[in-house]
Design a protein around this nucleic acid. Structure first.
Lengths: 166, 166
DNA sequence: TACTAAACAATCGTGTACGATTTAAATGGA
DNA sequence: TCCATTTAAATCGTACACGATTGTTTAGTA
């Protein structure tokens, strides 16, 4: 509890200490929630042969195919270093195809196969099953989602700013 | 858009479809928020030579040392398969020591070194800097934290239940 | 006391994540 | 047209993350 002036140089509010601690707890809560959620998805996705990130990729592809790796990355917030091997695993599992875009050989087009499309039917029961795991009622879920959405879009802006600055 | 009865077997509420979609979005929002947050911590933690999980481990150790691997795992929600290599990296960096508990040779006691303690001073400026990145005001942060905390503790219960059932 | 069961950390295999670099293709001026 | 620049994906190295298994130590019980 050393009374130091380090924080004075920042334009921090008066009640800094408390809020800073809160931010730390908030960040940890987000980190924990994300991890727990992934764990709870596992028993639902195992029968489909998907991991949670793979499930997200399939959701994106079911919405819009073909998609380029870049578009998927934009949608999921992942870069090619993560997506390329993930998509290769989906391809190895026979769920998607990957091919160079003839119109622009730099791009790679990803598309569900018939098997990948068929999986969509099985996957339909996942959200309902997951919902049973979520400990809040519908109103609370809605409120949490609203706040989180604003939070995420704000963070995205901050992240883009940080990227530009480098 | 096949009208099927698959979901009728679940005891789902009438407005199932909408809520289920929401849950999907909520889970994705959590996933995104967690990833973005980790990215925003990086420039703050790089000067300290820590990753975000390593920072969490040090926070736990600054609060309570020595801790066993199991206690750290409980606090952070990680298992030994994740923690052991992480702690070995912290040890290699000279920030912690690891030794078998003489009173119970199964346990391993982890403790910050002098260097690890010294790092605590540098780390004090991290929360304030991070706070500047967070896009919500103090009230919203508080509300989000409250909801998330309830959410996490509920998820933990669900997770424990799932573990017992297996 | 012997012997099984439980607890604990470590290890192995697989799958994200991402910064940094590389390779190839397209684009935009001089 | 030529060439530097930009864009897109892949690759490399490092670091989580976890299920399943292993090896060791302790605890519990007949």
């Amino acid at each position: 509890m050393t009374t130091e002036t380090t924080t004075k140089s920042k334009q921090a509010p008066a009640q800094f200490a408390g809020v800073a601690k809160l931010d730390q707890q908030l960040c940890f809560a987000l980190y924990s929630a994300s991890g727990l959620m992934t764990r709870l998805y596992r028993p639902l996705l195992d029968p489909l042969g998907l991991t949670y990130p793979q499930y997200l990729a399939m959701l994106a592809l079911w919405e819009r195919a073909p998609s380029t790796v870049g578009e998927l990355g934009e949608a999921l917030g992942l870069d090619s270093a993560t997506l390329t091997p993930l998509l290769k695993r989906l391809e190895a599992g026979g769920l998607v195809t990957r091919r160079r875009d003839p119109a622009d050989e730099r791009r790679v087009l990803v598309e569900p196969t018939a098997k990948g499309q068929a999986l969509r039917e099985q996957a339909k029961s996942v959200p309902a099953a997951m919902l049973c795991n979520l400990p809040l009622d519908a109103d609370e879920l809605k409120s949490l989602h609203r706040t989180l959405t604003r939070f995420v879009s704000g963070l995205r802006k901050a992240d883009a700013g940080a990227a530009n600055r480098s």
